[in-house]
């Protein structure tokens, strides 16, 4: 065994966010509070929370890597392994299930043919199920990366997948929530 080094100073993952991090640390009287914002940042930047990122966060916040690790693994939006370019998260909770979520999920899986880890062969999509995302009146719904897609039908899901494949974006994503719609 080799005794621990305190980490390699001046990490790579957060280098370009120095200013943001400096500001972030002013928000909390205790540095450790910045852990979730930094983990979220790493997840968004790298598609996963890498060991390098966790070590860097530990250094930034005067924590040990296990402290970052234990925190990271508690939260399901964070993943230690990379995900596809588009992370398709289908809500499977009761409220969406009542209005057809299972059917959509089956359809998506049949069409995108993800492997056991939920990722498509080309690595562009990762399909996973999630618990309630707070869109129960507009289910079935899914979240792809940061965006919500609601009141889904097979047809709509097909268009979304197509759009994303072609352009990387899709106009069908939700804007600010308003239900029932204003008459």
């Amino acid at each position: 065994m080799r005794p621990v080094s305190g980490g390699v100073a001046g990490g790579m993952v957060f280098d370009k966010h120095r200013d943001f991090i400096a500001e972030l640390l002013t928000r909390y009287p205790v540095k450790r509070s910045a852990i979730l914002p930094l983990l979220n940042l790493a997840q968004r930047e790298e598609g996963c929370v890498s060991q390098a990122a966790m070590r860097e966060i530990a250094d930034l916040l005067d924590l040990t890597p296990p402290q970052v690790f234990e925190t990271a693994t508690f939260y399901t939006m964070l993943s230690l392994k990379p995900r596809g370019t588009f992370h398709v998260q289908v809500c499977r909770s009761l409220m969406c299930a009542l209005v057809g979520a299972d059917d959509l999920l089956a359809w998506l899986r049949a069409h995108l043919e993800p492997g056991a880890d939920g990722a498509t062969a080309d690595g562009r999509f990762t399909i996973s199920t999630v618990e309630c995302l707070g869109s129960c009146a507009t289910g079935p719904m899914m979240q792809i990366n940061d965006d919500y897609y609601e009141q889904l039908t097979r047809d709509k899901v097909g268009r979304i997948v197509n759009d994303l494949k072609q352009t990387g974006d899709c106009a069908l994503k939700s804007g600010p929530f308003m239900m029932p719609e204003r008459k």
């Binding site: 065994m1 005794p3 060991q51 296990p66 402290q67 234990e70 693994t73």
Partner: peptide, 26 residues
């Protein structure tokens, strides 16, 4: 005051380890 052990995961699937796949350094 070593903070070398990490409970990872959540719920019944929580287990105790060091960090990532590393051997314990403490």
């Amino acid at each position: 005051d070593a903070q070398a052990l990490a409970p990872v995961g959540r719920g019944t699937l929580t287990w105790i380890t060091h960090w990532a796949d590393k051997e314990l350094e403490c």
